[in-house]
Nucleic acid binder design. Structure first.
Lengths: 265, 265
DNA sequence: TGAATAGTGTCTTTCAGACAATATGCC
DNA sequence: GGCATATTGTCTGAAAGACACTATTCA
């Protein structure tokens, strides 16, 4: 299991010169994958996309869509590619979770996976008339089977991440169509936070937050009063800090503002 | 730059059978490192540890302590090891930030780095009479030089992460000695949040939160009134979810609680 | 007694949370 | 008219934020 890499050899040699001990054998070149938790709301449920594995290990187990990074591809790119391959959707909210790197998480070799989660409105997803008719399915997050590798952990972490994110970012819109009713929006919040919310308090908060724009249109459905349709006001959150080294300056500017008192040193 | 790996070859071959196209050349095996942002408070300043590089690329530039993952080592382990090598400190608050994987972030080869940040009380750090007298230094976060690779970005991300973390976790204690005064604690908050805080409001919040225990001892210093010394009440936050697959159940249990109404489907 | 820091209380505003009746469209 | 969902407002408690004076020690 000591797969190595010519660049690693050279780099390690330089480092180890410094301590005069050759520990080359202690290193290995792990493989790196991305795994993507694709969330959507279907039938009033929060669901994730799973794929049935056709190879060992974990053959016939459900797993997250994922794969190896290609040359020249950023982590985000790789996640976007896999997302597109499974859902044929682009320009989707996609967020890195963290790296998962426990040594034995893949029995074949050392594999480190970078987890992502994506939010996709269910109407954007085509019926997956995909290439090889892999077995794919949308599973309710409350009824997940035991997944391959540490994918249950990745989903759990993704969901926690999403819950925290929802508290201060209007990500819920990513799971809806362009126009939506307040009731639909509330349902998404309830599914993510996994608890019922008070209708009046919810509407009060949303309407006063300024992120909603009235369309003037109504959604008529069934024999009852139609609902106002709203639209999301601001743009999609920007995750591209890494691709935009210039954005770094703004952040640092804020940090660099010196403390008001204590001009110490 | 097409460094490959025998395991990757096999695994890709299996995958690509599925689409009948051999895209083997599009893959590479990136190298994986950890980089650790070590925060401490010295001279009323928030500082990070930097190391002067002794090899190309970025020779003589300052950089974060970091290094390659060793066989059998988790990401956290690798970060802990590097942290110990630089500071001779163990049992430190250590938190993963995220993976940094932009293709050209290292000019030599494809290197993906997992960023961590650590919080270390300044009194715990020995004067670094380290092996090879590498050039190391503590830099104020407000006065960072231009660092090697994307290390400025990693530090910025670490700091943002820490700021968010501070809002709902008492991490500030990790930067203090066991016993501390409220003024010292406030200073740490001010340094991390990078803004002055109101003394009365701060003390009110801290004392009512229940995380502080009076020691009864006083800190006498200078010709002025001595201050009460406090101690941190609860234990160190537990980051070991990944090592503890059993903990997963608790989290999922919470998530699995079905919605109260809408027993739909 | 003066210098330096420790320590303390009130008022206002804001936000979250509990809670129930009326409005509207369709059949 | 009856059904089903949409829409609306008040009260209360908790927490955050603004704000300034007294207390204690030591030189």
């Amino acid at each position: 299991m000591t797969a190595t890499n010519p660049f690693l050899a050279q780099i390690i040699r330089e480092r180890e010169n410094e301590s005069s001990v050759s520990r080359f054998h202690e290193y290995e070149t792990p493989l790196v994958t991305v795994d993507v938790v694709i969330f959507t709301v279907q039938d009033q449920r929060l669901k994730v996309l799973l794929i049935k594995r056709r190879h060992e290990p974990y053959i016939h187990h459900w797993a997250l869509p994922g794969g190896f990074i290609r040359s020249g591809e950023s982590l985000q790119d790789a996640a976007e590619r896999r997302l597109f391959e499974e859902t044929h959707v682009k320009d989707v909210y996609l967020q890195q979770i963290r790296a998962f790197g426990k040594p034995k998480r893949d029995p074949r070799a050392r594999v480190i996976s970078i987890g992502f989660y994506a939010l996709v409105g269910s109407t954007r997803i085509k019926p997956i008339a995909d290439s090889d008719a892999e077995d794919v399915g949308w599973y309710c997050v409350t009824e997940l089977p035991t997944l391959a590798f540490d994918h249950n952990l990745i989903i759990t972490t993704a969901l926690q991440n999403l819950q925290v994110n929802l508290e201060d970012t209007p990500v819920a819109f990513q799971l809806l169509t362009e126009k939506f009713t307040l009731t639909e929006l509330q349902k998404v919040y309830e599914l993510i936070e996994n608890k019922p919310l008070d209708k009046r308090n919810f509407r009060k908060k949303m309407l006063s937050s300024g992120i909603l724009t009235e369309t003037g249109e109504l959604k008529k459905e069934g024999r009852h009063r139609p609902a106002q349709l709203y639209r999301f006001t601001t743009g999609m959150p920007d995750d591209d800090v890494e691709e935009n080294p210039e954005a770094l300056k703004d952040v640092l500017q804020d940090i660099n503002e010196p403390m008001s008192k204590n001009g110490h040193q």
